[in-house]
Amino acid sequence: MEDFSLDMRTLNFIMILFSVIYCIGLLLFQIAQKPIEGLTLFSFSIFLIGSGPFLLSFRGIIPDYLSIVSSNMLIVLGFHLTLYSLSIFRGYSTRFSQLSSILLLVVLACFIYFTYYDPSIRIRIVTISLFLAFVTLSTAFVTIKGKNEDLPLAVRMMALPFVAYSVFMAVRAVLAINEAEIADFMQAKLVHQLTFLFSIVLIVAMSFSMLWLINARLLRANEHLLHQDPLTKLQNRRALNDTIWHFQHKAQYAPVSIIMSDVDNFKSINDQYGHLVGDDVIQIVANTTQHKLSDSAAAFRLGGDEIMILIPSCTLIEAEVWANQLRQTLSGVTLATQPELQLTVSFGIALLSPTKNWQESVEKADKALYQSKRNGRNTVSIVA
């Protein structure tokens, strides 16, 4: 195995090439899309990770402060920014990044000392390896523990190469401690040569995973828009069709109430005040309704001024009390642009059947709503 050797300068060239390509690609993606927190720093970190080895390959040609100190500091700074950017991207505390910032100064001091005052390639390898082992393991941790909702498989795929790289760096540090002083880094043992190969793999893996995570976020956002009414931000009919089974399943164990509501004399409001005011009325009703909902309940805009509400573990009597509270709240609402407008809303209530066609249950709630209209509006009716 010792006879096997890698061309480190070639690996360095490949690394900077990959770094530039992925950095530019991610930055262009950031420009073309809605800005994503942490992505710009993440792109720049990839470039730095590739730039360090590139300078390192000119050792003996350019001054030591560039080929040794600056090159290695670019590498550790790149990994530090990767940790910081992923902490932001995944919504995790930056405390690991703060500790990494302190360690950066320690690494810089070690490299200056062991380059100019007590030259030792071996100690420099141990220093940077231990730092990278800590930072990459921390990066894997914040990636897994981040609070932002991301595709779980993509999150694990992002974290895995960092864990593997951390283990490799820890092993490299142990081996370097126990080996003799290294005369020429470019002719060092295979384990040190493999560092560049593994770094290339890490750059490719984390760039691919980042694109996967971003794409999953965009797909989820598009899916959310497909299920959201653009005016009220309530869920729409598509969302109702996709989630009604969930409420029917709950109805097998506890009552689920359906509440239908619409604004009284809404056509007259549109005719008298205009459709923009009509939209304002719908938004106020939707916002007030959403504000009063529990976490387990859901509201759907079915069209026009009609809103359907599903409340799990709620009897007809409890639903009537809730609807009356909402009705009274809405009766006291006024529009800033049309303070003279008296807003009232009617409600109809029924129970969701756990076995029958759910549309039959909705028809019962509609029937109750029509009964409220016949009873003079601004009332709550029940059809059992």
Score class of each variant (00 low, 15 high):
Phe96Thr: 05
Phe96Arg: 02
Ser97Tyr: 09
Gln98Val: 13
Leu99Gln: 12
Ser100Met: 09
Ser101Phe: 13
Leu103Asp: 08
Leu104Lys: 07
Leu105Gln: 09
Val107Arg: 02
Leu108Trp: 04
Ala109Ile: 11
Phe111Asn: 07
Tyr113Ser: 06
Tyr113Asp: 00
Tyr113Cys: 02
Phe114Met: 05
Phe114Val: 05
Phe114Cys: 03
Thr115Gly: 12
Thr115Val: 05
Tyr116Thr: 01
Tyr116Leu: 02
Tyr117Thr: 08
Asp118Tyr: 07
Asp118Thr: 08
Asp118Leu: 08
Pro119Arg: 04
Pro119Leu: 04
Pro119Lys: 04
Ser120Leu: 03
Ile121His: 02
Ile123Thr: 05
Arg124Val: 01
Arg124Gln: 09
Arg124Ile: 01
Ile125Thr: 11
Val126Ile: 14
Val126Cys: 06
Ile128Pro: 03
Ile128Ala: 15
Leu130Gly: 06
Leu130Gln: 06
Leu130Val: 14
Leu130Pro: 05
Phe131Arg: 03
Phe131Trp: 09
Leu132Glu: 09
Ala133Gln: 00
Ala133Pro: 01
Ala133Glu: 01
Phe134Ile: 08
Val135Asp: 04
Thr136Phe: 03
Thr136Trp: 00
Leu137Glu: 05
Leu137Met: 10
Thr139Val: 10
Thr139Gln: 04
Ala140Ile: 05
Phe141Ala: 14
Thr143Trp: 01
Thr143Met: 02
Gly146His: 07
Gly146Asn: 12
Gly146Leu: 12
Lys147His: 13
Asn148Val: 14
Asn148Arg: 15
Asn148Thr: 09
Glu149Ser: 15
Glu149Leu: 15
Asp150Gly: 08
Pro152Asp: 13
Leu153Cys: 08
Val155Ile: 15
Met157Asn: 11
Met158Cys: 07
Met158Tyr: 09
Met158Glu: 05
Met158Val: 04
Ala159Ile: 08
Leu160Ser: 15
Leu160Lys: 07
Leu160Val: 14
Phe162Ala: 05
Phe162Glu: 03
Val163Asp: 04
Ala164Phe: 14
Val167Lys: 05
Phe168Leu: 06
Phe168Gly: 12
Met169Trp: 09
Met169Thr: 09
Ala170Glu: 01
Ala170Ile: 02
Ala170Gly: 12
Arg172Pro: 14
Ala173Trp: 04
Val174Leu: 15
Leu175Arg: 08
Ala176Cys: 12
Ala176Gln: 06
Ile177Gly: 09
Ala180Gly: 14
Ala180Pro: 05
Ala180Phe: 06
Ile182Tyr: 11
Asp184Ile: 14
Asp184Gln: 13
Asp184Lys: 09
Asp184Met: 07
Met186Leu: 15
Lys189Arg: 13
Val191Gly: 00
Val191Asn: 10
Val191Ala: 08
His192Ile: 13
